[in-house]
Design a protein around this nucleic acid. Structure first.
Lengths: 128, 128
DNA sequence: TAGCATGTGCTAGAATTTTAGCAATAGTGA
DNA sequence: TCACTATTGCTAAAATTCTAGCACATGCTA
């Protein structure tokens, strides 16, 4: 099982992104979340393929299958974040934070910014 | 031209990521950077398609073409970062910073952490 | 109960992506 | 000069992805 999202085809990636975002979903819910959604049976076929590839598993709820990523969200987000840093930020966390604040800074509460400051302070203390 | 990377096929995405990372590259350089690299002519064919789709353009250096993304890295990274926040962090910058520090915090210099603190302080001031 | 909605497994074909080869040309080094 | 390497434009076929339909089953409602 490769957890490298760069190995995913276009639709596979759309579906994995959606599952990571919402955590778990029926085929119908997956379909609703897809851009240019194909038919219900097309979505199921894709989910079956993702399951065969080991990216997705399903649980039964009543008679419906609910699909969820095999890789936990925590792990997936670290991988994705590392890849983003490498691709767009020359592996610099500082640059990423600057970009983050450029996008979100105006909309963040002071309390939220304070909590972020404290995270950084904690990292400073651990660095010693 | 759609700048949504979720519309890209597997190879297209690998190539775009590489071009964003290094900025510009010849077909041979692109090929060297690809996982499970196909032949030189396969890479060129993919680059030609990416150019036709408007994601990539080329400049001539001597007789060689150098390829670069049409979208500037600044813009691409904001898009990618926004998508990452949405997919994996419930749109929370704070969560993203926490994950970032979890990955990179131990390896960051105190000076770097200070600069990050100052970015956050600046965002606080602008928020008023 | 019948009909509709919603679900599954499966299949196959359409569509797209990926691949590499050919022909021609230019550059380089022995 | 010649042989090799590196480049381009182009083409077509192989491979993969994407799509939807069928048959069957279950659940719900009028």
């Amino acid at each position: 099982m490769s957890d490298d999202s760069r190995d995913l085809s276009r639709r596979e990636r759309q579906i994995m992104d959606l599952l990571f975002r919402v955590g778990r979903a029926t085929a119908a819910e997956v379909r609703e979340g897809l851009p240019d959604a194909p038919s219900y049976s097309a979505v199921r076929a894709l989910l079956r393929i993702l399951e065969q590839k080991g990216h997705v598993r399903h649980e039964e709820e009543g008679r419906a299958y609910v699909f969820l990523p095999v890789v936990r969200r925590d792990a997936a987000r670290q991988t994705a974040l590392s890849h983003l840093l490498k691709t767009f930020f020359d592996n610099s966390a500082e640059q990423a934070v600057a970009a983050l604040l450029a996008i979100k800074g105006e909309k963040m509460s002071e309390a939220e910014l304070d909590r972020m400051s404290r995270l950084i302070d904690a990292a400073k203390k651990e660095g010693r």
